[in-house]
Lab assay of single mutants.
Amino acid sequence: GKMTGIVKWFNADKGFGFITPDDGSKDVFVHFSAIQNDGYKSSDEGQKVSFTIESGAKGPAAGNVTSL
């Protein structure tokens, strides 16, 4: 299901970062391709987002990331 969290950091040059879930669980990796914004796929530190957890090649990753 959908979770909410805060972007801990995001490196636009490398195209990835981490989200800290609101439920206190482990930080989740986020790749720019998962960000659902139109246009520039980046996110700012401290941005509140909703997301799903997908199982990626390197473990859990955020999917369907949407700014709230």
Rank of each mutant, 00 (worst) to 15 (best):
S67W: 15
V65N: 02
G56N: 10
K14L: 13
G15R: 05
S25L: 04
G56I: 04
K58M: 10
H31D: 04
G15P: 01
Q36K: 10
A57H: 11
F18G: 01
Q47A: 12
D13P: 05
S50E: 09
S55G: 08
D13Q: 14
E45Y: 14
A12P: 11
F32D: 02
S55R: 12
G1K: 14
K48D: 02
D23R: 03
D38R: 10
S25Y: 04
P21L: 04
P21E: 02
G1V: 13
F29L: 03
D38W: 14
N11G: 03
G1N: 12
S67F: 15
K58P: 06
G5A: 02
S43L: 15
V49N: 02
G39N: 10
A61S: 12
K26Y: 07
V28Q: 01
F10Q: 01
P21Q: 02
N11H: 07
N64E: 06
L68P: 03
G17H: 01
K2A: 08
A61V: 15
G17A: 05
A12K: 15
F32E: 07
V49I: 04
W9R: 01
P60H: 07
F32W: 15
K58C: 14
S50Q: 08
I53L: 11
V49H: 01
E54T: 13
V65D: 02
W9C: 10
G59T: 03
S42C: 14
G46N: 09
D13F: 13
T4M: 07
V7H: 01
A61T: 14
G39L: 12
N11A: 07
K48L: 10
N11M: 03
D13G: 10
F32R: 12
K2M: 11
V49P: 00
D22W: 05
S50H: 06
T20R: 13
K41T: 12
V30W: 08
N64G: 06
K14N: 05
T4C: 12
D27V: 06
D44R: 15
F16A: 00
P21M: 04
Y40G: 11
K2Q: 09
A61I: 15
K48F: 09
P60W: 09
S55P: 12
S50P: 01
I35W: 15
G15S: 03
T52C: 09
A61K: 14
M3E: 03
G59A: 04
T20G: 03
G5F: 07
A57G: 09
K26A: 14
Y40P: 09
N37G: 14
G46K: 08
T20F: 05
D22Y: 05
K48H: 14
Q36Y: 10
A61W: 15
G59P: 04
G1F: 10
G24E: 03
S55H: 14
V30G: 01
I6A: 05
L68V: 10
T66E: 10
D23A: 04
V30E: 01
G1A: 12
V65I: 05
V65Q: 02
S33Y: 06
Q36F: 11
S42T: 14
V49F: 05
I53T: 03
G59Q: 04
S50C: 12
G15W: 04
F16L: 03
K8M: 04
I53G: 02
T4N: 05
H31I: 06
F29W: 07
S42D: 08
F10I: 03
F29M: 02
F10H: 00
F18Y: 08
F10W: 14
K8H: 07
N37L: 12
T4Q: 06
K14S: 06
T20S: 10
M3F: 11
G24W: 05
F32H: 10
Q36L: 13
G39T: 10
D23Q: 04
D23H: 06
I35A: 03
M3K: 11
K58T: 08
S67H: 14
S42I: 14
E45A: 15
S33H: 06
E54N: 09
G17Q: 00
D23K: 05
K41F: 14
P60Q: 09
S50N: 04
E54K: 10
G46C: 13
V7G: 01
S55E: 13
V7R: 00
G59R: 07
W9Y: 07
A12G: 07
I35T: 04
V65E: 01
W9K: 00
I6P: 00
K2Y: 12
S43Q: 10
G24H: 05
A57Y: 12
T4I: 08
D22G: 04
I19N: 00
D13R: 13
N37I: 13
F16V: 03
D44G: 14
S43A: 15
K41S: 12
K26L: 08
M3R: 10
S25I: 03
A12H: 14
E54I: 15
D38I: 13
K58L: 11
N11R: 08
P21D: 02
I53D: 01
G39D: 11
T66C: 10
M3L: 11
K41A: 10
A34L: 03
A34Q: 11
G5S: 02
S43R: 10
G56C: 10
S25R: 06
A62I: 03
T20V: 12
D38G: 13
S55N: 13
I19V: 03
D13K: 14
K58Q: 10
K8G: 03
T66Y: 08
A61Q: 15
A12S: 11
Q36E: 10
F18M: 07
A12R: 14
K26S: 11
I35L: 13
G1L: 12
L68I: 13
F29H: 01
Q47N: 09
E54P: 01
G46Y: 09
G5C: 07
I53V: 10
K48T: 06
F32T: 06
D22P: 02
Y40V: 11
V7F: 09
S50K: 05
G24N: 06
I53W: 08
T4R: 06
N37D: 13
P21T: 04
K14H: 07
I6V: 12
G15C: 09
G1Q: 13
M3W: 08
D27Q: 06
F29A: 00
K2H: 10
A57S: 11
I19E: 00
Q47F: 10
A61P: 02
E54S: 10
S25F: 04
F18Q: 01
K26N: 10
V30F: 15
M3I: 09
N37C: 15
D38M: 14
I19W: 03
D38E: 12
A62W: 03
D22E: 05
S33E: 04
V65M: 04
D27K: 03
V65F: 02
D27N: 07
N64P: 02
G59K: 05
Q47M: 13
I53N: 02
T66D: 04
N64Q: 09
S67R: 14
D38H: 12
I19R: 00
L68Q: 06
F10R: 00
N37P: 11
V65S: 03
G59L: 04
H31Y: 08
S25T: 10
T4F: 09
E54Y: 14
W9G: 02
F18P: 00
G59I: 04
A62M: 02
D38N: 12
S55F: 15
Y40E: 08
K8Q: 03
G5M: 05
D27F: 04
F51C: 03
K58N: 11
G46Q: 08
G24Q: 04
G46A: 07
K2F: 12
K26P: 14
N64H: 09
A61R: 15
F29R: 01
